Computed example of a mutant assay.
Amino acid sequence: MDTAPTPDTYTLTRKADDDANEAWLLLHDGDLLIAFVDIVNCGYELWITDIAVHPDYRGRGLASRLLNGVIHDSPDSDIALSCSATTMNLKEWPKDAGGLPNEALAAWYARHGFRSTPHEDDEGRMVRNA
């Protein structure tokens, strides 16, 4: 019986740029980057700038694995983001590989404890309080 790989099948690595207060959680399948989350430490909260999964690897729980990794690594930090689907154009990914529509994306973040906190500069702002 053939079974699909679980999210734990793939290699998780962490990368940090302490000078920029920025860190990444990266998932690889061999040499291929298949998912990542980019986090900036703003001092008063963590800001997720991007979370993305390669189109060929979607539906396997990889984004949840990454988001849960951020939450687990920083249990005492508020985590914020701008809930908006974007297109990732990484050289090893298909062009124009867009994500979930904004409404579905907001529901997914809500299942992970985020709540809508619109701001005049960002109507899609969501926060998960520590």
Rank of each mutant, 00 (worst) to 15 (best):
Ser64Met: 13
Val40His: 15
His119Tyr: 08
Leu12Trp: 01
Ala52Arg: 03
Leu27Tyr: 02
Asp122Glu: 05
Ser74Ala: 10
Trp47Arg: 15
Trp24Asp: 05
Asn102Phe: 07
Asp76Pro: 03
Tyr57Pro: 01
Met88His: 07
Asp122Gly: 07
Leu81His: 04
Asp19Lys: 04
Gly30Glu: 04
Ser74Trp: 14
Pro55Met: 03
Ile39Trp: 00
Arg115Val: 04
Asn21Val: 00
Cys83Ala: 02
Leu105Arg: 06
Glu45Ile: 12
Ser77Gln: 06
Thr9Leu: 06
Ala20Asn: 06
Ala4Lys: 08
Asn21Glu: 09
Asn41His: 01
Asp78Trp: 01
Trp108Val: 10
Leu66Gln: 00
Lys15Trp: 15
Leu62Val: 05
Asp73Ser: 04
Phe114Ile: 03
Thr87Lys: 12
Thr13Pro: 06
Leu12Ala: 08
Arg58Asn: 04
Cys42Gln: 15
Thr87Gly: 14
Glu45Phe: 11
Leu12Cys: 07
Arg115Met: 11
Thr9Gly: 07
Trp108Lys: 05
His119Met: 13
Arg128Glu: 06
Val40Trp: 15
Val37Phe: 06
Thr11Trp: 11
Ala106Lys: 09
Tyr109Glu: 00
Arg115Thr: 13
Met1Glu: 10
Ala16Ile: 05
Glu120Gln: 13
Asn21Asp: 09
Tyr10Gly: 08
Asn102Lys: 04
Ala110Ile: 11
Cys83Ser: 09
Lys91Cys: 13
Ala4Ile: 10
Cys83Arg: 01
Ala104Ser: 13
Arg58Phe: 13
Asp19Ile: 11
Ser64Gly: 11
